[in-house]
Design a protein around this nucleic acid. Structure first.
Lengths: 164, 164
DNA sequence: AGTATATAGTTTGATCCCAAACTAAATGGC
DNA sequence: GCCATTTAGTTTGGGATCAAACTATATACT
């Protein structure tokens, strides 16, 4: 098929006993989709570890940021912005309310809707998480390189907007 | 914080009745992590739709490709290559075996290990999926642009390899 | 050989996600 | 005002994933 084999080392056997095998990724290694997935998962994992240090997780960070930036936002608006189904948000918001990070009020003009806002405690947590996120971004920047960063993000945005 | 607000339109109200609100993504919009997630999820979704047309899903594609390229591979090796926990692979392999796409044999030299291979039917399914994947790649290429593709993939690989 | 340790794969329990069904409230057509 | 439709949010059911506990083999040390 005109595609060279690409091998990746695979750990095997005991400690120093060197890898005895490698894996052939075949065409996967050259495809954007596969590499996009691998990069995203690695980056997510890394941010996840950082977030854990302050007892949060990446999902909470996105949610808190969106609420902070859009005070009074509804759960449905939040789910659209976040790219999750609204039903996925129910337990997340419940948890944030329970822990006192988010205040949830019914809206008088439409009693189906909730209005979400950060509490003082939520703001404090968000600013801690934002520090985490900035460190994470710096480590990504170091890999991507200042020269390519802007174009890299532009490409990602185009993929998200235009694919299919 | 020196970051301009970035607004995205949000659908609201009935059909023609124009969006009445927009969402402020704040710093999220400029961060690699967030855009990486959005791009990956959009691309994954698109490939998922394509795969569905032939009754498969993206996960099966990666698994079948890796087995095809590495005949006799074990489940643990497969899970490492695939970046999933070995326990996640148990039901996947079960399903592939049940549907006759993969043959699973015990290895004589080590009776804990399974040896996985594609059946004829598995090879046929894989080649259908590979056609799907190539279409998907072409649509990604159209967005990324031939000029940037190589560098884009190189950057993704570096992120996957070096982050954290 | 005998015992401790490591490894392959499965099971179990948790989290996160979506899609579809559901409840309550709002809106539109008549 | 009344009924059909739409909308906000929750519930339920199913899939994918991981981590930890488990079973069975295999290996290493003595």
């Amino acid at each position: 098929m005109g595609i060279k084999n690409v091998k990746a080392p695979l750990r095997r056997g005991k400690n120093g006993e060197a890898a005895a095998k490698s894996i052939d990724f075949g065409p996967l290694a050259h495809w954007v989709g596969f590499n996009l997935r691998m990069a995203q998962e690695a980056a997510f994992e890394a941010f996840s570890r950082r977030s854990q240090e302050i007892g949060e997780n990446p999902g909470r960070f996105g949610t808190l940021t969106l609420i902070a930036r859009n005070p009074g936002i509804s759960q449905t608006e939040l789910s659209l912005a976040n790219g999750r189904d609204k039903s996925s948000l129910t337990p997340v918001v419940e948890d944030l309310v329970r822990r006192g990070l988010v205040a949830r009020k019914r809206v008088n003009s439409d009693k189906r809707t909730y209005s979400l806002n950060l509490t003082a405690s939520g703001k404090k947590t968000l600013s801690q998480m934002t520090r985490c996120a900035r460190q994470h971004e710096r480590s990504l920047d170091a890999i991507i390189g200042e020269r390519h960063r802007k174009q890299f993000i532009a490409t990602l945005k185009r993929i998200a907007a235009e694919i299919e």
